[in-house]
Amino acid sequence: MTSQINAESQSLQPSATISLFVLDTSFLGGPLLYFVQGSEHRGNVRFGGIEYVAMDVEFSGLEVSGAGGLPTPKIRLANTDGLIQAIINTWGDLVGCTLHRVRTFERFLDGRPDADPEAFYGPDTFRIERKALETQPFIEWDLSAAIDQEGKQIPGRQVIRDTCLWRYRIWNENTHAFDYAKAQCPYAGLQSYDINDQPISDPSKDVPSRRLSCCRARFGAGNPLPFGGFPGVARTS
């Protein structure tokens, strides 16, 4: 999160709030689904080099009880285009899969003059506990917040300043192609690089250095960098 998003949230005329979701079904061997709340935007958007498909989403139950109870959120996705139905038909009710949400402002999306892939709130992480309702118009799931999961400890992710922790693509010798099934890094370019971020011709030797220079080599220094570290974290002595 950068200081820009705090300044925007306190602006007298902030740009529209955008909620971006990632449904991770890799727990069941399925894909990562990227979607944006359609009611907040008129079509697909890109943020941090990733395209989010516009979808009718209703996300509720995030209120925190005054008695200290944890929220019990629900998510309802439109089923009109058959996409979510196809996912369920293939991978089941998605119980155990995770849902990530980040919130940003429209001015920070890719392609805007102030595009900034680090200007966001979150991610908020939830786990699908059960499919609550399935109808032709929509499908609804009950979620649990990441903090409300058995054995969960805080912090859930180690904060490292200069190292990207995203899972990178893997070269499959059998198919002679990259495997993106569990990849978190969005890089899908044809050019491969070695551990020192130098271009190479052998894709089987493609490995990330996990530094900011790794992102710059792959996405270009002037483009948004989907770096999985925390370069904004101040150094302490």
Rank of each mutant, 00 (worst) to 15 (best):
Q37M: 04
Q37W: 01
G38A: 03
G38V: 00
G38C: 04
S39N: 13
E40P: 00
H41S: 11
H41P: 00
R42Y: 04
R42I: 06
G43Q: 06
G43W: 02
N44H: 13
V45D: 00
R46G: 08
R46K: 12
F47C: 13
G48N: 09
I50P: 02
I50M: 13
E51Y: 06
M55H: 07
D56W: 00
D56F: 00
V57Y: 00
E58T: 10
E58K: 06
F59P: 01
F59M: 03
F59Q: 01
S60R: 12
G61L: 12
L62M: 14
V64D: 09
G66T: 01
G66P: 01
A67E: 09
A67I: 01
A67Q: 11
G68D: 07
G69Y: 07
L70W: 03
L70V: 04
L70E: 03
L70S: 06
T72F: 11
P73A: 11
R76I: 04
R76G: 04
L77Q: 02
A78K: 03
A78M: 01
N79G: 04
N79F: 03
N79D: 11
N79L: 03
T80C: 10
D81T: 15
G82F: 13
G82A: 09
I87F: 04
I87G: 01
I88A: 08
T90K: 14
T90P: 07
W91V: 08
W91A: 08
G92L: 10
D93L: 08
D93C: 07
D93P: 05
L94Q: 02
L94M: 14
V95S: 05
G96L: 11
C97P: 01
R101T: 02
R101Y: 04
R101H: 05
R101W: 03
R101S: 00
V102E: 02
V102P: 00
T104L: 05
T104G: 07
E106R: 15
R107E: 15
R107L: 15
F108H: 09
F108R: 06
F108W: 14
L109P: 03
L109G: 08
D110K: 11
G111Q: 12
G111K: 12
R112C: 08
R112L: 09
P113E: 08
D114H: 14
D114R: 11
A119H: 10
A119L: 12
F120A: 09
Y121A: 13
G122K: 03
P123E: 05
D124W: 12
T125E: 12
F126G: 02
F126Q: 01
R127L: 03
R127F: 05
R127I: 10
R130Q: 09
R130C: 08
K131F: 04
K131E: 15
E134V: 06
E134A: 13
Q136K: 13
F138D: 07
F138L: 04
I139T: 00
E140Y: 03
L143W: 02
S144M: 07
S144N: 14
S144K: 14
A146H: 07
I147W: 06
D148M: 06
Q149N: 14
E150W: 07
G151N: 07
K152I: 08
Q153W: 07
Q153V: 15
P155A: 04
P155E: 04
G156T: 06
R157N: 05
Q158I: 15
Q158G: 14
I160H: 12
I160K: 09
R161E: 09
R161L: 13
R161K: 14
D162L: 13
D162C: 11
T163P: 06
T163V: 07
C164D: 03
C164Q: 03
L165D: 09
